[in-house]
Design a protein around this nucleic acid. Sequence first.
DNA 1: ATTTACAATTTGAGTATACATATTGGCGAC
DNA 2: GTCGCCAATATGTATACTCAAATTGTAAAT
Lengths: 252, 252
Amino acid sequence: MARTAGPETHHTRILEEFRQKIVDRIWEPGFQLDKETDLANQYGVSRMTMNKVLTQLAQEGYVVRRKRSGTFVSKARTQAAVMPINNLADEVEALGKTYRWQLFAAEIRVPQAAELRLLGVESPPIPGEVIVLGGMHYADDEPFCLETRAINVDVVPNAREVDFATHVPGHWLLQSMPWSTARNAIRAVNVAGSEARNLELPVGAACLEILRKTVMGSDWVTYARLLYPGEAFQLTAEFKTKATAKTLSPQA
Amino acid sequence: MARTAGPETHHTRILEEFRQKIVDRIWEPGFQLDKETDLANQYGVSRMTMNKVLTQLAQEGYVVRRKRSGTFVSKARTQAAVMPINNLADEVEALGKTYRWQLFAAEIRVPQAAELRLLGVESPPIPGEVIVLGGMHYADDEPFCLETRAINVDVVPNAREVDFATHVPGHWLLQSMPWSTARNAIRAVNVAGSEARNLELPVGAACLEILRKTVMGSDWVTYARLLYPGEAFQLTAEFKTKATAKTLSPQA
DNA sequence: ATTTACAATTTGAGTATACATATTGGCGAC
DNA sequence: GTCGCCAATATGTATACTCAAATTGTAAAT
């Protein structure tokens, strides 16, 4: 089944056509479209249907709509990269390798200052006791990702009963805390010491470091530091040029 | 003005409420919502209005809808990081530093095999002549990003007349080619040789390497390699847990 | 000539209605 | 009991109205 085909309804067809026209610059940035009612007539549909098309198009950022003024192809653009962060296990198995998680240590205690610094924790929000754990993700018995993590047991109380030797922390948390948001910082670092040893890399090898802070409502759920060998690993992101949609302030 | 408030219409209000209910797990994953008509009655709106809410919610991935079956809070989720890639100049100036672009060389010629390898160009799509250029982005006269780039003059013919000593290539291309898409690969590498010298880093220092391929329709526009000093630079990405929206296969 | 006020226009939101489509659960045939 | 068909049901799409809100251009007043 060609999933790309889609349902092929009126508004889908017109939407596709308009998007194409904008992407192909047949309608250049700044171009004013005909008004809803006219377009509806031209395409032989009702205004409501054309409205659905234009509303959708505006939501995707292709056009900007203003009352009394009209509908215009967007000019102000920004680029946004979307990278799906899949489960490491899936990722590894997609490469035809076998995945394995090895827990080094997990304890409930007050975190050390050095650990908090490593995880990029800001000064204020440190509760008393957290789960501090470390471990390694393997692909075919090759080190793939070194993980250091702190989990807020106040927010995820049932994490106390989980055996993180068998349950991969990231995966368990994702399942357990749906609809959370996270903030990532990606850097390149030179590894050294025990980290280099654990990753089976020479001292000074470049690694990709991801510091992730996961938030649920107003509380932090977990801080994680993921260290990937630079050579073996590569993040990919899909770009899309997109207009600064949102509710843009009047008088823009 | 509190911009967060919004227009406060029926469907906006209900949409907000439903999203909150799902995020707060009042409606847990897998929970079946009442049917459109019932919900419409409960909230005192017409079915069309409630339909708008639920359609939107489905599009955002919070719920899955199936005919005859009903509307369910999504279970299958994935994480997607969205990172806005702003103009480097803006980025630098946001830090209160002065931005400067220094072109090393720009020539129209057949690219060398080593250059293509460096830029991550796949085997087939190499046209005869391209613009090959290199340069450095500075923040307060400190090296900030080393750029190597190939531009397809067949797709962007007026790039021949541009002086890339004064026009920053990435910015010019973004302005010139709206609605293009790009694919990024992010790695950590150890710098060496002239690259280390240009970036004023010791040999072996960890750097963030971004390989970017920009596409317009079926043709590639540009290949770029951006090298950031690991210490000084950090990519940040905002996460959102999101359901695998799209048309998911039946029997999920 | 500049400001103010009003009216026309265009999008935004909502309702009632109709018909299409897919899926499920039950009923009947074997 | 099992299999297959059919009808009931929930969503999907579309239409034709109606009223609201915002903005802009024009016309009137100072």
